[in-house]
C-alpha cells in the first residue's frame, strides 16, 4: 500500500511541483489538490507548499488561509491528519490559526536565500520522527518575510511544551525570536517551517554537503517520516 499525500496549489504557489516530486522521491503518491475545491480526495496527509499566494496581498498567507479547501484542511488537522506547511505554507498555517505567532519581514529587510543549518528540536512529530532530537540538518531557505514573532506568553508556552520543531543554527537569517525556524502543534500532526525540505530530496539538486556539491537530501526524512506514520496507522 502506498501513502497518498496531497499538495495544495493556491494562486501564486511556487513550489507545489517540487513538493509533489519530493513526495514521489520519498516513496508516496503525490495528489494535486486545488485551493478552490472542498475535496481532500481521501489523502493521508497534506503539504501546503511555498510561494507567494495571492501575491502576499493583505499579509503573507492571509488570503490563502480563507480558501475553500482550508475548511477541510483545518477540520482534518484538528482530527489528527498530518499537515506540513513550508514557507508560505507555514504562513498560511499561522494565518489559519493552526499554529501560533506571526511571520514578519526579515530583520535585515532583504530577501534571504541560503543553505541553512537547522537543529531538530522535536523529533516526535508526524513529520520529524525519522530524525533524532538534536540532529543538525541542512535545507535551503528562501524568504523575505520569515521573521517569527509571538508575544512573551506564547513564546514561553512554545518553549515549555517543546513545540519548537526546528531552530536556526550558526546564522539567524531573518531575526526570528529564539532562532525559531519551525513549530509543531501539541498533537504533533501539524508542522510548519520557513526553510524548504522539498528542495533537499534529490542528489545533484540539494544543498552542498561536506562530501559533495548539491548532495544534501536531509529533507527526505520529513516525507519518509509521515509515510511511515501514515502506513503504521492503517
Amino acid at each position: 500500500m502506498t501513502a497518498r499525500i496531497g499538495v495544495v496549489t493556491f494562486p501564486g504557489s511556487l513550489d507545489d511541483r517540487d513538493a509533489q516530486r519530493a513526495i514521489r522521491l520519498a516513496g508516496a503518491e503525490a495528489v494535486a489538490l486545488w485551493h478552490g475545491d472542498h475535496d481532500l480526495q481521501g489523502v493521508d496527509a497534506v503539504v501546503l507548499p511555498g510561494g507567494f499566494s495571492y501575491g502576499d496581498y493583505l499579509r503573507c498567507g492571509a488570503i490563502a488561509a480563507q480558501a475553500p479547501i482550508m475548511h477541510e484542511i483545518v477540520a482534518a488537522a484538528n482530527a489528527g491528519m498530518p499537515v506540513l506547511g513550508i514557507c508560505n505554507g507555514f504562513q498560511i498555517l499561522v494565518e489559519a490559526h493552526l499554529l501560533p505567532g506571526g511571520l514578519i519581514r526579515n530583520e535585515a529587510g532583504a530577501f534571504v536565500c541560503r543553505d541553512q543549518t537547522l537543529r531538530v528540536e522535536n523529533a516526535t512529530t508526524a513529520w520529524t520522527h525519522g530524525f533524532e532530537q538534536g540532529d543538525l540538518i541542512t535545507v535551503p531557505l528562501k524568504n523575505g518575510e520569515g521573521g517569527f514573532i509571538a508575544d512573551a506568553e506564547t513564546l514561553k508556552r512554545l518553549e515549555g511544551e517543546g513545540l519548537v520543531a526546528f531552530r536556526y543554527v550558526d546564522v539567524n537569517p531573518n531575526g526570528s525570536l529564539d532562532d525559531i525556524a519551525g513549530l509543531t502543534n501539541e498533537r504533533g500532526n501539524v508542522v510548519g517551517l520557513m526553510p524548504h525540505p522539498e528542495h533537499a530530496t534529490e542528489p545533484g539538486f540539494g544543498p552542498d554537503t561536506p562530501s559533495a556539491m548539491r548532495s544534501g537530501v536531509d529533507g527526505l526524512t520529513f516525507f519518509r517520516s509521515v509515510i511511515e506514520r501514515t502506513l503504521a496507522a492503517v
Partner: peptide
C-alpha cells in the same frame, strides 16, 4: 479577524 493580525 481578517484585515489585521493581532500578533503584528
Amino acid at each position: 479577524e481578517l484585515l489585521s493580525n493581532a500578533v503584528i
